Computed example of a mutant assay.
Amino acid sequence: MKIIVKRILALIMVLTLTVGCQAIKNSNKTQRGAGIGAAAGALAGGLIGGNIGGALIGAAIGGAAGGVIGHTMDKQANKIEQAIPGAEVKRVGEGIQVVFDDKSGVNFDFDSANLTGPAKKNLDAIADVFLEFPDTNLMVEGHTDSVGNDGYNMSLSKKRANAVVNYLKSEGVAGNRFSVTSFGETRPRFDNATKEGQAKNRRVEIGISANKEMIEDAKAQTN
Score class of each variant (00 low, 15 high):
Lys103Val: 11
Ser112Phe: 11
Asn192Ile: 04
Gly58Trp: 03
Ser209Arg: 07
Asn162Trp: 00
Asn153Leu: 15
Thr222Ala: 06
Asp102Leu: 10
Gly207Pro: 05
Val173Lys: 08
Thr30Gln: 11
Leu156Glu: 00
Ala220Met: 13
Tyr167Ser: 02
Lys169Pro: 02
Val173Met: 09
Leu115Pro: 12
Glu185Ser: 15
Phe190Arg: 14
Leu11Ala: 14
Val165Tyr: 02
Phe133Thr: 11
Lys120His: 06
Gly117Leu: 11
Ser209Ala: 15
Arg202Tyr: 12
Ala39Ile: 04
Thr144Lys: 09
Gly45Asp: 03
Leu131Cys: 12
Gln198Lys: 15
Leu15His: 04
Leu56Gln: 11
Val14Thr: 14
Asn153Glu: 09
Leu168Tyr: 07
Glu171Ser: 10
Phe110Ile: 10
Ala44Asp: 05
Val180Gly: 01
Glu216Gln: 15
Gly70Pro: 10
Gly117Gln: 13
Ile206His: 05
Asn201Met: 10
Gly54Ala: 12
Arg203Phe: 03
Phe108Pro: 01
Thr136Trp: 00
Phe133His: 13
Gly54Cys: 11
Asn28Gln: 00
Ala113Cys: 06
Asp102Glu: 14
Ile61Trp: 03
Asn28Thr: 00
Thr222Glu: 10
Arg189Val: 07
Ile3His: 04
Gly37Ser: 15
Gln31Arg: 09
Phe133Met: 03
Met1Arg: 08
Asp111Pro: 00
Lys2Trp: 02
Gly35His: 04
Ala23Asn: 08
Glu185Leu: 12
Gly151Tyr: 13
Pro118His: 08
Ile69Cys: 01
Val68Met: 08
Asn78Ala: 15
Thr194Phe: 00
Ala199Val: 01
Val147Ile: 11
Arg187Trp: 12
Ile126Ala: 10
Ser209Thr: 14
Gln221Ile: 14
Arg187Cys: 04
Ser170Asp: 09
Gln31Cys: 09
Ile208Val: 15
Ile57Ser: 10
Thr30Pro: 00
Val106Cys: 06
Met139Val: 02
Gln76Asn: 02
Asn51Cys: 13
Glu216Val: 05
Met1Cys: 03
Leu138Ile: 14
Ile3Trp: 06
Ile61Val: 14
Ile24Cys: 05
Ala87Met: 07
Asp101Lys: 13
Asp191Arg: 07
Leu47Arg: 04
Asp102Trp: 01
Gly49Gln: 08
Tyr167Asn: 08
Asn137Asp: 15
Asn176Val: 06
Ala87Trp: 06
Ala23Met: 14
Ser112Pro: 07
Asn122His: 15
